[in-house]
């Protein structure tokens, strides 16, 4: 049975997806039938969220978003250059290793953004999640990837109002 809060959250998500769709299709009315189908699918497949807890409230910190975006852009550029240099060298330079990282973030949205962002940073790929423990694959055991990941986690926390 859907509660009032989950109905409201589904309605908000539907409106946001519809807005995206209208921008992507330049408001073409003929495409709305496809939009309706996929919006309904997205709502049905959305993982359940516990609205009784404060953790799922979405209060974004604007300066945190800007700091994250800047960090993300620079690190993405470094990540792209690093991986290109490795694959274009005569013998690809890979000294891969797995390690575990204890995630401190508690809010589900923050955790999702953090896990998704890890794979786009230099040398890191989030391979699995076991409770709060992340299994991270790194291309080079000598890179100081945990420090970069900690910094990323703090910035994501700042966006969602979690002080780490």
């Amino acid at each position: 049975m859907m509660t009032m809060k989950s109905l409201r959250s589904s309605a908000k998500l539907s409106l946001a997806l519809l807005a995206f769709w209208l921008i992507l299709t330049a408001g073409d009315p003929a495409s709305l039938i496809i939009a309706a189908l996929f919006i309904v699918l997205a709502i049905l497949l959305k993982p359940p969220v516990d609205h009784s807890t404060r953790k799922t409230r979405l209060n974004l910190n604007f300066s945190g978003v800007l700091q994250f975006a800047w960090f993300f852009m620079l690190e993405s550029l470094r990540g792209g250059i690093d991986v290109s240099r490795r694959v274009l060298s005569v013998r690809p330079r890979v000294d891969a290793v797995f390690y575990d990282y204890s995630m401190r973030l508690q809010r589900p949205y923050a955790q999702q953004l953090f896990i998704s962002s890890i794979s786009l940073l230099p040398g890191t790929l989030c391979a699995d999640l076991d409770n709060q423990q992340l299994h991270i694959h790194t291309l080079d055991r000598h890179m100081d990837t945990p420090e970069g990941i900690r910094q990323l986690e703090s910035l994501v926390g700042k966006i969602f109002g979690e002080a780490l």
Partner: peptide
């Protein structure tokens, strides 16, 4: 690159940038 994990690094990061 030698394995699936390393290949994913190349695809995700290089394609993103």
């Amino acid at each position: 690159l030698p394995d699936v994990f390393s290949r994913l690094h190349a695809l995700a990061k290089a394609d993103n940038i």
